[in-house]
Design a protein around this nucleic acid. Sequence first.
DNA 1: GCCAACGTTGGC
DNA 2: GCCAACGTTGGC
Length: 152
Amino acid sequence: MNYWLVKSEPDSFSIDDLINQTNGTEMWDGVRNYQARNNLKLMQTGDLVFFYHSSCKQPAIVGVSEVVTSHYPDPTAENPQHSGYDPKHSPESPRWFVVDLKFKQKFNQPITLSWIKQQKALADISLISKGSRLSVMPIDSNHWHFIMESAK
DNA sequence: GCCAACGTTGGC
DNA sequence: GCCAACGTTGGC
């Protein structure tokens, strides 16, 4: 069992949008960065995922979702009408992948980026370390549990 | 809107 | 394989 964090711009897709999906489940498409994709491919059913709001007034971890499928080819990469279309992607040799994420929990209090930066226990969390622009990143279990305790 | 910190592309 | 130019991310 592994822990992850995914970023989403709340103006495009917020945690409340996830709640409102059928079964609270959304296909996590549109990842077009190789490192983020490699992280997606490592995800397994049952892994837990922080939902992070980026590029907004208050960047923060706002809740938790669960991986409910292993990775499969990203259908939006096959669609020439879609902004995520990649001519180098094909069903025969897929380049981009998705997983399905299911809503699990919304924090009463968002765990804000500015708060995270103040915590000694989170000094080396991937979210604020080098290469932190990844939209899918692993989270150490000790960081995970510290944040879960803080969100109570 | 600015800009630092990347990642990607493509000419050579 | 190098690297300049360009694009993107995302906090501020």
